[in-house]
Amino acid sequence: MQHYHYIFTGSGLSALMTVYEMMLSGKFNDKTMLLIDENPKKSNDRTWCFWDQNHLFEDIVSKKWPQATFSNEKFTRVLELTPYEYKKIDGLAFYEMVFKMISEHKNIHFLNQKVVDFTELGDHCVVKTAVGNFTCNKVFNSIYNPKEVTSQSKYPLIHQHFIGWFIKSKEAVFTPNCATFMDFSVELKNNTRFMYVLPTSTTEALLEYTLFSKNLLSKEEYEAEIQNYITRLGITEYEIIEKESGNIPMTSFPFWKNNSKNIVQIGSAGGWTKASTGYTFKNAVKKSKALVQFLKTESDFVKFHKKDKFWFYDLLLLDILNSKNHLGPTIFSSMFKAGSSEVVFKFLDEETSLWEDLQVIWRCPKMPFIRALLNRILP
């Protein structure tokens, strides 16, 4: 069996981001690496959006928005995002950037196959594929196993699920420099439901009907709501250029407990998705940097974890969304209705001080969080 220092089971965002950081560090040029994925990463299968003030991956950002609106049935607020900008990166652009760098490193290889299994055997690991087996010192696993979360009830699982249409309309109804972050003026149906809009011109935009809830909908229901929203915007004629859909797990499940000395869970499989929002890109950047820094001095992946206050904040919100999903619009509206939006984005990026945390928390309705807290700390 061929041996590698590191094998990545899966080559999605988290794996490629970690390899990218390893290449940038220059500390792993003497280590052989193998990425294994049945998806060749040659199509634009997803987009990532994030708020940023540090020119992150500026060369492959396809669109920026200096403003965003937040709406519900009672108010609409235009958020001036300065010093942040809301940015979009297309999946294919990121894949091409990383794989171009990989092609310049003879120690890094890609295998377009499905991972069948992997296991730790003493001081090494074995990874099995349909075409053969490989051994390695360390495994970075990003293959998410939903049964692990759905088979328990201590940590709720909320889905961020959506269908999106990228349309070109006859009427010029969009504001190209202003994204719609959350529009809760849609019919809520006792759920946390909103419309998310990313305009690229006055006549072109991506419209996503999105829910944070336990149960998925039929394709027809998502698309009917998108059609209703298009009509509300005053659009009479339009062409659907592309469609996309997704289902992102939102949970505070302790994935780190699956880490062993030589196997580390990354990406959604490692809890790298921001549990309260479903955002992945910025978290993957931070976690991959931390993991690469860890590798420079440590060898036992059991030590790679740090549970912090933000994990607990997210847990309380998910407890509320799990038991009283209809409260989601009220909670998010209270955060964005007034006051600094900068501190909210900083809070969601997990970069706030305790004083700044309190500024955001104090805006939210108190009783749902108090009940959620008591349910967690009392037997």
Results as ranks from 00 to 15, higher is better:
M17R: 15
S43Q: 13
R376F: 04
M97P: 05
C364S: 02
D349T: 03
F57R: 03
H105Y: 06
Q113W: 03
K296C: 11
M1G: 11
T129L: 15
N72T: 07
M17E: 10
N190R: 09
L216G: 14
Q67N: 12
P83H: 15
E239A: 06
S11E: 02
T210A: 08
N259W: 09
S71Y: 08
N322M: 10
V292Q: 11
N215L: 08
F174T: 02
F332I: 13
Q53H: 12
V149L: 13
R46H: 12
S71H: 00
F94T: 03
P176D: 06
N215H: 11
R46Y: 06
I60H: 05
T82W: 11
P368S: 06
W51C: 00
L354D: 10
E356R: 03
D357M: 01
G270V: 07
H124T: 08
S14C: 01
I163G: 04
S333I: 13
F369I: 00
P254T: 07
E21K: 15
W165G: 05
L217Y: 06
L206C: 10
E120H: 07
T202G: 01
I7G: 05
W256P: 01
G12W: 01
V115C: 15
W65T: 06
A68I: 10
E187P: 02
P83C: 15
N259L: 12
T9E: 07
A179Y: 02
P365V: 05
V116A: 15
K261R: 12
L24I: 05
T192C: 15
F304D: 13
K243A: 07
T236F: 04
E356M: 07
V264A: 15
W362R: 01
F253L: 10
